[in-house]
C-alpha cells in the first residue's frame, strides 16, 4: 500500500509537470490551431532565469519569481509577434507555422547557452526540499507545490474558458478566427494572449520543477515532447484532455520505472500510446471542440 502511495506521488509530480506543459500547449492550440514547439523552452527559461534572478542577483524569491514570469511573458509575446503573426498574415499553413515555433525553440536554446553555458545549474527552491511524511509517504513541499500549482491552474483555466465571456471568445477564435472577427473580437489579440499566458505557465513550471530536475539549457525539448505526447494521448482541443494525458504519462512512467527499469520507461510508454491511438485515433477524451467548421 505504501509502495503504491509512493508510486502515485512520484507519478503525480512528474505527471503534473507534463500536464502543465500539455495544458499550455493545448491552450495555445485552442486559440491558434498551432502546436507551439517552443513551449518546453519556456520551462527551461523559467528554471534558468530563476537561477539568474535569485542566485546571481540574490533577489528574494518573492521578487525573483515575478521577474521570471515577466521575462517569460515577454519572450512569449515575441514568439507570437515575430514568428506566429507574420507567418499567419502571409497565409502560411499550420505546419509551416509550427516549424516557425521550432525555430524559436532553437533560438531560445542557443541564446540560453550563451547566457548560462552548457552545465547543469542548481535552481534555488521556493519551497523546502526536506522530506515530510504524511501517512507513511514521504514527500517534499516543493513536490507538493508542483501538484498544487497544476491543480490550481487547471481549475483557473477551466473557469476562464467555460465560465467567462473572455473564455468563450478564446474558444470562438480557435474554431474560426475570421468569423470571430465578424463578432468584433480582436482575434490576433486573443491569440497573442494565449501565447503569453502559456509562456507564463511555462515559466512558473520551470521555477517549480527546476530544483528537482536541475536547470539545463537543453531541458526544454524533452518537456515539449512529453507535453506534446500528453496532448496527443488526451486528445486535441481541450486543455483538460491534455492535462489528463500528462498525468497518465507521469503515472505510467513511475509504474514502469518501479517494476522494471526507468531505461525502458520511454519506449514502453510510446508503445502504449501508439496502441491507444490505433484504437482511439482522437485521443482518450477525443476532440471536444477541435473541429474547425
Amino acid at each position: 500500500m505504501q509502495t503504491f502511495g509512493i508510486l502515485i506521488l512520484s507519478g503525480l509530480t512528474n505527471g503534473s509537470v507534463y500536464a502543465l506543459v500539455g495544458l499550455s500547449l493545448a491552450m495555445t492550440y485552442g486559440a491558434s490551431r498551432v502546436i507551439n514547439f517552443a513551449q518546453g523552452e519556456f520551462v527551461m527559461l523559467g528554471a534558468l532565469s530563476t537561477v539568474l534572478f535569485v542566485t546571481t542577483f540574490s533577489l528574494p524569491m518573492v521578487v525573483g519569481i515575478p521577474m521570471v514570469l515577466i521575462v517569460c511573458a515577454t519572450v512569449g509575446f515575441l514568439v507570437e509577434r515575430l514568428a506566429y503573426r507574420p507567418l499567419v498574415r502571409r497565409g502560411s499553413q499550420p505546419l509551416t507555422i509550427m516549424i516557425g515555433t521550432l525555430a524559436c525553440a532553437s533560438i531560445m536554446t542557443g541564446t540560453a547557452l550563451l547566457i548560462w553555458g552548457p552545465n547543469q545549474l542548481f535552481v534555488p527552491n521556493a519551497f523546502s526540499l526536506e522530506g515530510v511524511t504524511i501517512a507513511g509517504i514521504t514527500s517534499t513541499p516543493q513536490q507538493l507545490a508542483i501538484i498544487a500549482t497544476f491543480a490550481f491552474l487547471m481549475a483557473l483555466i477551466w473557469f476562464m474558458l467555460y465560465r467567462t465571456t473572455f473564455g468563450l471568445t478564446i474558444r470562438a477564435v480557435g474554431i474560426d478566427p475570421a468569423v470571430a472577427t465578424l463578432m468584433g473580437i480582436r482575434a490576433e489579440t486573443i491569440i497573442a494572449f494565449s501565447f503569453v499566458f502559456s509562456a507564463i505557465v511555462g515559466g512558473l513550471t520551470g521555477g517549480l520543477v527546476g530544483p528537482l530536475l536541475g536547470g539545463h539549457v537543453s531541458m526544454g525539448i524533452m518537456l515539449t515532447i512529453k507535453g506534446f505526447m500528453a496532448v496527443i494521448l488526451g486528445g486535441m482541443g481541450s486543455p483538460f484532455a491534455a492535462a489528463a494525458g500528462g498525468i497518465a504519462i507521469g503515472l505510467l512512467e513511475a509504474t514502469v520505472a518501479f517494476y522494471g527499469n526507468s531505461f525502458y520507461a520511454e519506449p514502453i510508454i510510446f508503445g502504449l500510446i501508439l496502441m491507444m491511438l490505433i484504437i482511439r485515433p482522437t485521443g482518450l477524451l477525443g476532440e471536444w471542440e477541435a473541429n474547425r467548421k
Binding site: T165, L168, T169, R171, A172, I175, D176, V179, A180, L182, M183, G184, I185, W288, E289, N291, K293
Partner: peptide, 28 residues
C-alpha cells in the same frame, strides 16, 4: 456594421446560446 455571412458560418461546436452570446460581443 454587422454581417450575416454566406453559408451561415456558425461556431458549430458551441451551443446556440453561446453563439448568441458571441453575437452580443459588441455590446458586452
Amino acid at each position: 456594421i454587422i454581417q450575416v455571412p454566406e453559408g451561415r458560418k456558425l461556431f458549430g461546436p458551441l451551443t446556440v446560446d453561446e453563439n448568441l452570446t458571441l453575437g452580443s460581443y459588441r455590446v458586452r
